[in-house]
């Protein structure tokens, strides 16, 4: 199946950089995208590169842009189109106040979740 091989963002994206299950990355991608937007105005491909540099793998456009569209619809992002010097224009994204609140809330929840999970995963001596 040609199409399946080429486009299955829910199965194949993002590409794991260090062999993590794609489920983990998919669960964290929304929060990490919000984090990439925290430092200021940025655009789609810059977010992809930042996530890649952070070790999260190269996210496909087919995965990232629907996510950004969802954030925009939720009111977490302000967007602005600017003409490109060469080629097409560029869409810039910026977190709104609501977006910053959402990031803070999700970050806190994520830390709580990973802390609980890490505690639970601590190796224990086998019971006799």
């Amino acid at each position: 199946m040609q199409t399946k091989q080429i486009f299955e963002p829910s199965e194949e994206e993002p590409e794991p950089a260090v062999g993590w299950p794609s489920d983990w990355l998919r669960a964290a991608l929304g929060l990490c995208t919000l984090q990439a937007l925290e430092s200021g105005t940025t655009y789609g491909y810059a977010i992809i590169n930042e996530l890649d540099r952070a070790g999260l793998g190269k996210v496909k456009g087919g995965t990232l842009y629907p996510l950004l569209t969802r954030f925009e619809t939720a009111g977490w992002l302000d967007v602005e189109w600017r003409p490109g010097e060469q080629g097409p224009g560029r869409k810039y994204f910026k977190l709104t106040e609501l977006g910053h609140q959402e990031l803070a809330m999700q970050r806190k929840a994520w830390h709580s979740f990973t802390s609980t999970t890490t505690t639970f995963l601590t190796p224990k001596a086998p019971k006799n």
Binding site: I6, F7, K60, G62, P66, T69
Partner: peptide, 14 residues
């Protein structure tokens, strides 16, 4: 972006 039909479905859901 994969196939146009699937990408449109993702955008419509968002």
């Amino acid at each position: 972006f994969g196939s146009p039909a699937e990408y449109a479905t993702h955008i419509a859901a968002s």
